[in-house]
């Protein structure tokens, strides 16, 4: 390898993606990537979010003039990637997602998500909570406190959210749950034979909590004063 000076740096989000991906690969999760422009079907309908359901409000969407959309989560790959796979599977999907939101220090119109899901004949919700706990302790140290709360995402049932405690405050960091039987059916998998779990987390937010960054927009500013610090 050459060794030019000064050294360049990876973007902190990429550092976080690497860290996360390497963790989940240890447990057999395969990296799958998918398109940023997708259809309403894979982004919503296939995930049990029908057209006129208020759950759609949770994910305000950029629509293209041709009727397609910018994916609001990498969960689009749940049904997509199962078109040529059979359980058991363990998959993670890192990638950029988009939300039609006014921007401020904690909201962005684009962000990175790491989606993960597993389908097998004997998966329980405790497999999900255990691996997420292990992951957060890997990121924030073994002493970090975590908790799970009920959550709602139309494509999981039961649905949960996870918090971690940093500087004595609970921080909401991810949504997860057991894959909804309707989604399994859309994958052509029998909900009677198989169960699955899924989780999705915003890399930007985790990265910001980790480095103590107060403004999400810095990530996409291209400002070298920011990028050179990592």
């Amino acid at each position: 390898m050459p060794n030019f000076l000064p050294k360049g740096r990876l973007h902190p989000i990429n550092i976080f993606l690497r860290k996360s991906v390497i963790f989940f690969q240890k447990y057999g999760f395969e990296i799958v990537e998918g398109p940023e422009i997708d259809t309403e079907y894979y982004n919503f309908d296939a995930l049990n979010i029908p057209r006129y359901h208020p759950a759609r409000d949770m994910q305000d969407t950029f629509w293209l003039k041709d009727g397609r959309l910018l994916r609001t989560h990498t969960s689009t790959m749940q049904v997509r990637s199962m078109q040529n796979r059979k359980p058991p599977v363990r998959i993670i999907v890192p990638g950029k997602c988009f939300r039609h939101e006014a921007t401020d220090a904690s909201h962005e119109t684009n962000f990175y998500q790491l989606e993960g899901f597993a389908i097998d004949s004997n998966l329980k919700i405790s497999h999900l909570t255990s691996i997420l706990n292990k992951f957060m302790k890997e990121l924030f140290g073994p002493e970090v406190s975590t908790r799970f709360r009920p959550g709602y995402f139309a494509f999981v049932e039961p649905g949960i959210e996870m918090d971690i405690k940093l500087e004595n405050e609970w921080q909401e960091i991810l949504g997860a749950g057991m894959i909804h039987p309707n989604v399994l059916k859309n994958m052509k998998i029998s909900p009677k034979k198989y169960t699955g779990f899924a989780f999705g987390m915003g890399m930007d937010r985790l990265m910001m909590l980790y480095y103590g960054i107060n403004d999400i927009r810095l990530s996409y500013s291209g400002d070298l004063r920011f990028l050179k610090q990592f």
């Binding site: 050459p2 050294k7 360049g8 990876l10 940023e36 996409y220």
Partner: peptide, 17 residues
């Protein structure tokens, strides 16, 4: 990307719009 970093390049991520 590691290779580019070793050549002194910084990674940026921009909006797609």
């Amino acid at each position: 990307m590691d290779l580019l970093v070793n050549y002194g390049f910084m990674q940026v991520i921009n909006y797609p719009y």
